[in-house]
């Protein structure tokens, strides 16, 4: 078993501050979106001086703090792969990946509304990482190459599914706006056409699905290679069963052409459910043998 690298008080404070920064960025971005929506006849004129504290600045600040914690921990542990070796570091690495994705969405502009929903996801991931670390610190068996591939692929897969989940939320909101065009507040929510969001969702899941499959296969290979860690009944553990359920959810989403009834809002709900389930599996796995 690897040596545990516990979170210091300073690291905890920094990472919680980063979480605050991401939530601030979310609030700022929400405010920016709603400024258009609020410009009703009697509304106040738009702010002549634009906000100096922009969502980009807040998210950038959060990402810098996360990166500082990650690098300082990796340096103090003398391990470059620390980001793949335990829940806390893996989750904050995922948060960094999602921040990069957020920046890309912001930059493309027409996907800006997708970016909005990544920010709370990042904050949740950080809190989940801290929570899991508090609940019981676990190091993964990253000396085993299967395990390293397993954690690496699930990390990238989770980033794709988070993007898929965010696009699901945007789809549902945009659809609601289109179904009730007269309802104030929804009318001008900036969102790309439903068809674009649906396409993006499919691409995100198309990319995440093989990564999830690789993660499942490498995980199974590791469990078979090292049967003592997870026990002989690993195949029937809740983690494996839940993973199978997630795999099926995403497989069905990918086959919407075969099951067209899943198109539209149903696919959006499924992609949100898939990501939530993935987080549940992450949390559940913490208490299970083998990680």
């Amino acid at each position: 078993m690897d040596n545990a690298i516990h979170i210091s008080i300073l690291q905890l404070a920094t990472i919680l501050a980063a979480c605050g920064f991401f939530l601030l960025a979310f609030w700022l971005q929400l405010r920016r979106f709603s400024r258009d929506i609020r410009s009703e006849p009697s509304g106040t004129p738009p702010a002549a001086a634009p906000w100096k504290l922009s969502p980009g600045l807040a998210a950038g600040g959060g990402a810098t703090l996360v990166a500082l914690v990650l690098v300082s921990r990796a340096v103090s542990a003398h391990r470059l792969t620390l980001g793949l070796s335990n829940y806390f570091d893996t989750f904050i690495l995922l948060a960094l990946l999602l921040t990069a994705l957020w920046a890309w969405f912001e930059w493309t502009r027409h996907l800006r509304s997708l970016a909005l929903f990544l920010l709370p996801t990042i904050a949740i991931l950080i809190l989940l990482g801290v929570g899991l670390d508090m609940a019981g610190y676990r190091m993964f068996h990253t000396r085993n190459p299967w395990m390293l591939a397993h954690v690496g692929s699930i990390l990238l897969g989770a980033a794709c599914f988070a993007a898929g989940g965010a696009s699901g939320v945007v789809y549902l909101l945009a659809e609601r706006r289109l179904r009730f065009p007269n309802r104030p507040g929804w009318r001008r929510l900036p969102a790309p056409p439903l068809a674009s969001v649906e396409k993006f969702n499919r691409h995100a899941i198309l990319l995440g699905f093989p990564l999830l499959t690789i993660a499942a296969v490498t995980g199974a290979l590791w469990a078979m290679e090292d049967p003592h860690t997870m026990g002989p009944d690993w195949f029937y553990s809740p983690k494996v069963i839940l993973t199978a359920v997630i795999w099926l959810v995403y497989a069905s989403l990918l086959h919407v052409r075969l099951a067209p009834a899943l198109r539209g809002s149903r696919a959006a709900w499924l992609s949100i459910a898939g990501f939530v389930l993935l987080l549940v599996v992450f949390a559940a796995a913490n208490w299970m043998p083998g990680g």
Binding site: A174, L178, L194, A195, S196
Partner: peptide
């Protein structure tokens, strides 16, 4: 405008 909200092309 509503059609453009649904379709991208």
């Amino acid at each position: 405008e509503l059609l453009r909200g649904v379709f991208d092309r």
